[in-house]
Design a protein around this nucleic acid. Structure first.
Lengths: 208, 208, 208, 208
DNA sequence: TGTTAACCGAGACGGTACGTCCTGTCTTGGC
DNA sequence: GCCAAGACAGGACGTACCGTCTCGGTTAACA
C-alpha cells in the first residue's frame, strides 16, 4: 500500500482524547457559545497549537468528538428485527440515547452555527443528520413495500420530520424529555399515520 | 397617576429603530454568532453606549426586534373561525409566516444561546415559544371538547410537538421549506392522529 | 487655528506615564531582549490595546520614555560658559548623567536593534545620538574659531568619536563607570589632542 | 591518557560548519534579533535537535562562529615589530579587519544581549573583548617601559578606551567606517596623548 | 561483517508573545 | 439627559517560535 512513511514524532493519542473530552465537557457545562479554543486547550492540558494543528475551529473538535461517541455506540442504524415498527422504535431509541446531556449542547450549538456556515451544514448533514434521517426513511419505505405501512395519506418525508422534529424541538426547548417513552409514542403515532387503511382526510381550506 | 415627569432629551425613536433593524439585518446576513454589539452600533450609525443604555446584550436587541415584528403581524393567536381544523391551519400559517429569512437566524441563534442561559430561555418561552404553543394546544383542546377531535390515541402535547417540532426541524436543517403547504399537511396529519374514532394501536415492545 | 475638535474620551495621561515608566523599569530589570509589549501592558496595569494604540512597537515606547527623561533634564546642549573646555565638560557631564542604570539597557538595546532597522536608526540619530554629537562638535569648532583649540593634528570628528566612543564602550562593556570623572579625563585629553601648538606626529607605516 | 573511546557515529563536521555559517549569514542579513534557532537549523538544512545538541542558545552558536573566524585570521595579537607604535597600528588593523559586515551585527547583538546575561558577558570578555584590550594595553605599557611613551598625562586604560571605544561607536552608529585609515588616525592620536613630554593640562572645573 | 550506539531529519508536544478584534465601561463635547 | 465618538481594561483570536520529546533511518568505529 502507499502507506506514507511516518516522519517525526507521531501524534499523541493522549492529547487527542484529552482535547475531545475537554471540548465535550466544556460544551456541556458552559454551553457552545462559551466554548473556546483556548479553553479547550487549557482544560485538556495541551498547547494551543496542538489543538489548531489538528482542528481548524471548535466546530471541528466537536464534530470529531461526536463522531467518536457515535462510533462507540453505533449499534446499528438498521436493526432488522423483521417487524418494521419494532425496527423504527429501536432506531429512535438508539438515536435518542445519543442526545445525552453531554452532547445536547454541542448538537444544538453546531446546528445553530451551521445556519451561516454552509460547509459546516454540509458536514453535519453528512454525518449527524443525514444518515439517521435516511435510515428511518428506508425503514418506513420497506414497511410500505411490505404492505405493513402505507404512504397514501402522508408522505414518508413528513413522517420522518415528525419523528426527528419532535426530538430537536425538545432538545432545544427542554419542555419534555427525549427518552425511550417518546420513542414509543412516536412509533405509535407513525403507525397510526401510515396505517394501510388510512385515507387522507378533508384538507382544511387555505387560510388566505 | 405616577406618570414620571420626563426630563432632558427624550429617547430617539430613530436610534431605536436603526438599532433593531441593524440587528436583524446583520443577523440575517452574517449569522447570530457573528452578531456583535459593536457591529450593531456601527451599522445603525449609533454610539455604542446608546445600544448598551437600552439593551444589556445582543439577545435583548434581537428579542425586542422580534417582538416588534410579531406585534406588527399579531393578527391573532386565536382565529376562531368556528371550525377547529381551520383555526389550527390559520394559526400554523400565521406562525410559519413569521419564520422568514429575516428572523430564522435570530430565532435559531437565540434558542441555541438559551441552552445555557436560563433567564433567556425563560423569556423566549414567555414570548416566542410559549404563547404559540399554548394557543395551538387550546385550539386542539377546544376541538376535543366539541367532539371534533379526540385525544384518546395521542396526547395533545405530543400533537403540538409534532407541529412545531417539524417547523423547528426544518428551520434548523433547511431540508424543506416552512410554508403554507406544510401548514396544510400538518393540519391534515393532526386531524388523522386526533380523529374521534382513532384507537391507539399496539405499541411495539421496548427495545431493550 | 486648525485645532481639530476633540471627540470622544481624551487620552489618559495616567496610562501614558504608567506605560513609559513600566517600559523603562522592565528594560532596566530584565533587559531589552526580555522586554515585551505584553509585559509592559501588564506591569503598567493597562490593556494591551492601549499600548498598541499609541506605540507600534516596544522601540517606540522606549524612545518616548527616553525623550521624556531627556526633556526633563535638557538643561542645555549648549552651556556657553565662555570657556570652551568648561562647556565641553559640562556637555559631557550632562550627557553622561543621562546614561543611568535606568536608561543604559534601553540605549544599548535600541542601538543593537537599530543595526537592522534603518528607520529606527534614523530616529535614534535624530533624537538621541545626533544632537549631542553635533553639539559637542559645534563647541569644539567654536574653540578652534576662537583660537583656544586647533584641529591641525586631529579632525574634530575623530575627537568627538573619542569622547562618545568611550562612553558607549563603557556602557556596553561595563569595565569602568561613565561618570563625572570620566568627563574630566576626556575633556583633558581633548584639550591635549586639540592644543593649538600640536603638530601631527609621524604616522606609523601601514601594516601591510 | 583519558582518551574516552569514541563509539558510534562521530559528529558531522559538515553539519557543524553549516550551522555556524548559517548563523552568521542570517545574523548579517536579518539582524541579531531576528536570528532564531529554528531559522538556523532550517537554513543549515539540519535538524533542530542537532543545533540544540551542541549549542544551548543562539549566542553560543555565534560565539563559536566568531571564534572560528578569529582563529582563521589570528595573525597575532602581539606583532612585535620592534616599534611600539607600529605594533599598535598592526594590532588595531588586525582587530578592525575582524569587524566586517559579516560579524558586525553579531558582535553588537551579542554585546547588547550581554547587558543582562552576566555569563554571556563574562564569555565575551574572555574571548572577544578582553584579550584584544589586554594586548593593546600590554603594547602601550611596553612602550612606556621602553621610554617611547609616557602615561604621565593620561592613563593607559583610558587610552585603550579611546581606541576600542571609537571602534565600537562606529560599529554601532555607522557614521564612519572602521578601517585601516582609522587605525592610523587612532595610532597617531595615541602617540600624541602618550608622548613622553606631555603634561596634563589644566583640568576644567567641575560642572556643578 | 555484523553490532551497535550516537548521529541526523523531521515534526508533534506544552508553552508564550505576537498583533488584532470585540467586550462592556468610562468620559468627553455637542445637541 | 441623550447622543456620537472614542479611549480604557480585559480577554480570545489564530500565528510563530521557543526548547523538549520521540520517532525512523543513517553511518562509522568496534568486535
Amino acid at each position: 500500500m502507499d502507506e506514507t512513511p511516518v516522519r517525526g514524532r507521531p501524534r499523541s493519542e493522549t492529547a487527542r482524547r484529552a482535547v475531545l473530552d475537554a471540548a465535550l465537557e466544556l460544551c456541556r457545562s458552559s454551553g457552545y457559545q462559551a466554548l473556546t479554543m483556548k479553553g479547550i486547550a487549557e482544560k485538556a492540558g495541551v498547547g494551543r497549537q496542538t489543538v489548531y494543528r489538528w482542528w481548524p475551529a471548535k466546530q471541528d473538535v466537536l464534530i470529531d468528538a461526536l463522531r467518536d461517541l457515535a462510533l462507540l455506540r453505533a449499534e446499528q442504524l438498521n436493526p432488522e428485527t423483521g417487524d418494521t415498527l419494532s425496527d423504527v422504535r429501536m432506531l429512535l431509541d438508539a438515536t435518542f440515547s445519543l442526545t445525552t446531556a453531554l452532547t445536547g449542547n454541542a448538537l444544538v450549538g453546531l446546528m445553530a452555527e451551521a445556519q451561516h456556515d454552509p460547509e459546516l451544514s454540509r458536514r453535519l448533514q453528512g454525518t449527524v443528520i443525514g444518515p439517521r434521517r435516511q435510515a428511518l426513511r428506508d425503514l418506513l419505505a420497506r414497511g410500505v413495500a411490505g404492505g405493513e405501512l402505507s404512504d397514501a395519506a402522508m408522505s414518508l418525508d413528513l413522517a420522518v420530520d415528525f419523528a426527528f422534529g419532535t426530538m430537536w424541538y425538545r432538545l432545544i426547548s427542554h419542555h419534555a424529555p427525549v427518552d425511550s417513552e417518546l420513542a414509543g409514542q412516536i412509533t405509535a403515532a407513525l403507525a397510526e399515520l401510515l396505517r394501510p387503511d388510512a385515507a387522507r382526510g378533508p384538507v382544511p381550506p387555505p387560510a388566505d
